[in-house]
Design a protein around this nucleic acid. Sequence first.
DNA 1: GTCTATATGGAGATAGAC
DNA 2: GTCTATCTCCATATAGAC
Lengths: 204, 204
Amino acid sequence: MARTIGADGRKTAQRILDQSLPLIAKLGYSAVSMRMIAGAVGVNVGALYNHFPNKQQILVRLMTDHMNALLAGWHEIETDGLSPAQRIEQFVRFHIAFNIPRSEDVFISFMELRSLEPENHKMIEGLRSQYENIVASIIRDGSDAGQFNVADTHVATMSVLGSLVGVNTWYRETGRLSKSKIQDYYVEMTFRALGYSTERDANV
Amino acid sequence: MARTIGADGRKTAQRILDQSLPLIAKLGYSAVSMRMIAGAVGVNVGALYNHFPNKQQILVRLMTDHMNALLAGWHEIETDGLSPAQRIEQFVRFHIAFNIPRSEDVFISFMELRSLEPENHKMIEGLRSQYENIVASIIRDGSDAGQFNVADTHVATMSVLGSLVGVNTWYRETGRLSKSKIQDYYVEMTFRALGYSTERDANV
DNA sequence: GTCTATATGGAGATAGAC
DNA sequence: GTCTATCTCCATATAGAC
């Protein structure tokens, strides 16, 4: 079956999103013009407006798609019957595995919040806080069960998430450490930060 | 002594920086125009160019001033003769105390790296890595001395810094927790993450 | 040092032919 | 659905009067 000349397997709307992502991650939303996006996609500016009503909606789609995929990714993981310590370990491994190959999405979802109009901002903030709540409730459960020992659930949640979010700022594919080693180290440091003590393993 | 009408105690260049800071923090460098800055300062656009050769140099000054103040602030602290654990405690307290009242500078210095032209980017990166090295060398000293127990110095450095940097994203002046309580919690979690064990205090 | 006025270019968005 | 052409506005930066 011959392909129509000039057609791409994916739909144009998705190609627009795919091309916008690295541009916005690199230059910032304000610095990227509709002309640049059109050029990267290989269409003229006017064509973009057949797929998105305006520039803002491209950004909104990038951010919602990312946040929804993040939440859906976590919910695919089976955590029934796991202890809080096992759940936080799953979470740390999931977060690192999911975000490392998506550094541009992660960057945009954090940096470009300020470029959103108020109602869009509110919507994305809602998705973000759902993600925070995953961690908060694991920590709360662990504290209630006496498995964790933290002075303040909220501070502990923010500290754990902050250290994880930072991974994306320094991880390099070609770096010294494999993804799974990094996961191991972060699991251990998270356990320690939460006051979860087990002598399972002495060489860490 | 009467003040000249329309004059401000500070020099105009500094007023330009002071007004640019919140604008860029809120809207982003690309989204802030020279007209907006001029409006906030209370002069006409052309006047800005008597103090800065172009827009980029305003950003460069904001970022270098902040990074230099950060490094200078740390070096004012007397750490001679302190153990690695005491030094990391000083660092955690310093970082939180210094950055909380400067959330806009912190935000810009991280977010607007990509808005810098290559040579400026390199210069700011140099200042940033000096700051990272402070933490890295404390952790290395602590590991060498057997006071800390970390699997990987670099990962530990990035995790500690990541969790600290995150404080600025959630701290609110009017929040539930005082600055000194937050410092206490982070000191404790950092000690734990670094494997520094002391039973000085059981109620944390 | 600040002003007014302007040069020059690029932005987002739309209309209408194909 | 994509194109060309264009509207309107605002960007950075400069020139020259005061």
